[in-house]
Design a protein around this nucleic acid. Structure first.
Lengths: 352, 352
DNA sequence: CATGATCACTTAAACGATTAAGTGATAAAC
DNA sequence: GTTTATCACTTAATCGTTTAAGTGATCATG
């Protein structure tokens, strides 16, 4: 039984036997933590190459308690959608980019996260050193339960919590930026087709919109503030309704580009043109925004940068917890600024 | 030193001690593989809840040699781009979707894959049960070296290899489909702005284009076959050149939608219109294709389905290798059919 | 020439699970 | 009343590493 042909992967023991040294020695050449004679080292390397040996990450991780891997918790209801969602996929791009630079792998958790009980198994099972929580839907309690399961957490686009680092784009600034732009063009009746109210971006963007109006001395009109949906499905009908108001808006601030596209279509369907009759500003600066006609004025969010920043912070946190033996660091809170991208869908208020 | 306060995560031993049973018993309640008295089981569950215990996946995986995790090898040069690449990101969506259904996690490997030596460490270090190789660039040798490092492999959009399952879209059919459509509209001078020749889709699509011409009795014209780049950067100038030919093409088959967008722009810049003067068909059916003017006729690839299929096959393969003790299965080869999506950028040949 | 350093390793105890084999008690069978 | 089966566990080996502590040889020191 002992002399069966070696079909199994070789272990450190096989290498040690082949070289006539102990497993400890092999481990030391692997990790370079001890002084070894050059010829021993070379002999071991040679055996590794000959036998096509690669260390087992589980055995190593079991002992060292580090895997050089980050976990990503997909905050959306359907995690597979997360990957193509233009918003989250660019964040993910930043994450992978920075993780790669620092030689970390990235694991997408596929568990169901709804309900505190269900959450947790895989985020603390040792396969990752820390986790990134991306845009959890509002109303879930994961942000309360997670930090005590896994201290190495950085959240993106999430409500603030003690002991959890947060990275987010400044939604207030974004809402204000878009609205100010329209005000500067002379518009005063500015409608706002908001995004979903169950996302954390809802409140601050609305506040930014209202703040801009306030500074300009414009009284907000509740009929001009309509809760739309980020998938754009509601925007057509809602725009139609807005245009049929006694005093119709001369500008529409759309909660994202998908809404903006539908808004533009609806405006045209109503026999009006963009931006001559109605200006439209979007949000997100998706690739399609620069390719449609008219090219969309929109708010660009530094999404890749968010991913990079969050990843940098998480890896820092992991390093800190390794050296400090798990002392809780106080939370950091980073807000990145969105940028206004002026294209062709906005123009000065037409004199009548 | 032994009586320090328990700040560490509890282990199976802690649970066993707390309940006055052996660790084996705790393990059995965890895995339900042995008959236990109901009250013992309940006592153990209670302790787990009280102490907030979760099993360590590394320790478990070390013994069982399975992690319920899939690895993804990003075949592109820059893996972070992979995530937003409209092609690969939809495949990834299918992968995550199916992995989630079967309760597998998905790990994005961030290693450098260029060069046979560099490749390999993490794909066989035990952290995943199998790997998916997505669209490796042609000319790399990973497809030769990988299978012997990790038998559980399924490749997407990769050149065929013994013992490696391949899932791909039928590029020949796609090239023929697009060309036939133009031929059916009466076109005979049909240019082809190909994609990058270093990708495996190049040859079969070109063959499909030529086959369609051949069936229609059209002599291929080398001046009409131009190697472009998938990022669209070359297409503008190349289209301009095509339009300046003595007998200019009446239709252009673009290697992908990005190329098609630039082609349409260039046609307009030349004072011509789409589809009246020149028909354009794209490839990929990106989201933007249905949003531009004119809406783009294009070839839709079942990308999500590719991801799902590949993942299903990989998980089957993993299950098979677990039960058969690593016997090599013969390779399967699945080709999925692309679909023609007719929109507004193609029209019948104008009578002159 | 005993003492201490230094070198180049080896020994052996972890890490946190799983699981085949063993055990003692009770119940059923003959 | 001995044997056998069943139940409900426990014992102990194992998975493949890491690493603190130990060891024997060689060399320099006072």
């Amino acid at each position: 039984m002992k002399t069966q042909t070696r079909l199994q992967k070789p272990t450190i023991k096989d290498i040690a036997n082949a070289c006539g040294v102990s497993t400890a020695t092999v481990s030391y050449v692997l990790n370079g933590k001890s002084v070894l004679r050059a010829d021993t080292r070379e002999r071991v390397y040679q055996a590794m190459r000959d036998m096509n040996y690669h260390p087992n990450a589980l055995a190593r991780g079991l002992h060292t308690k580090t895997m050089r891997a980050l976990g990503i918790m997909l905050g959306t209801v359907d995690p597979s959608e997360f990957v193509v969602n233009p918003y989250t996929s660019r964040i993910l791009q930043g994450v992978v980019q920075e993780a790669r630079r620092q030689k970390f792998h990235v694991t997408l958790f596929t568990d169901d996260w709804l309900g505190a009980d269900a959450s947790g198994p895989s985020i603390r099972d040792g396969r990752t050193d820390g986790i990134l929580v991306v845009a959890p839907i509002l109303g879930t309690d994961i942000m309360d339960t997670l930090p005590e399961m896994q201290p190495n957490i950085v959240a993106i686009s999430a409500p603030a919590r003690p002991f959890v680092d947060i990275v987010d784009v400044d939604d207030f600034a974004g809402g204000r930026l878009a609205t100010e732009h329209l005000i500067n063009l002379g518009h005063r009746r500015i409608a706002y087709l908001t995004g979903n109210s169950d996302l954390s971006s809802y409140q601050p963007r609305l506040a930014g919109y209202l703040a801009a109006l306030d500074v300009a001395g414009i009284e907000p009109d509740n009929r001009l503030i309509v809760e739309s949906h980020f998938d754009g499905s509601l925007a057509g009908a809602q725009t139609k309704a807005l245009l049929e108001l006694p005093e119709r808006p001369t500008a529409i601030f759309a909660g994202n580009d998908a809404i903006a596209f539908q808004t533009v279509s609806a405006i045209r369907d109503a026999g009006l043109s963009v931006p001559e009759d109605v200006s439209v500003v979007g949000y997100d600066d998706m690739p399609a925004a620069s390719v449609v006609t008219p090219k969309l004025t929109t708010i660009n969010q530094p999404l890749v940068e968010i991913g990079v920043t969050a990843t940098t912070m998480l890896i820092e946190r992991i390093a800190a917890s390794e050296s400090s033996g798990g002392l809780r660091r106080k939370a950091e809170n980073v807000l990145l600024a969105p940028k206004l991208v002026v294209r062709d869908s906005t123009g000065p208020l037409a004199r009548r």
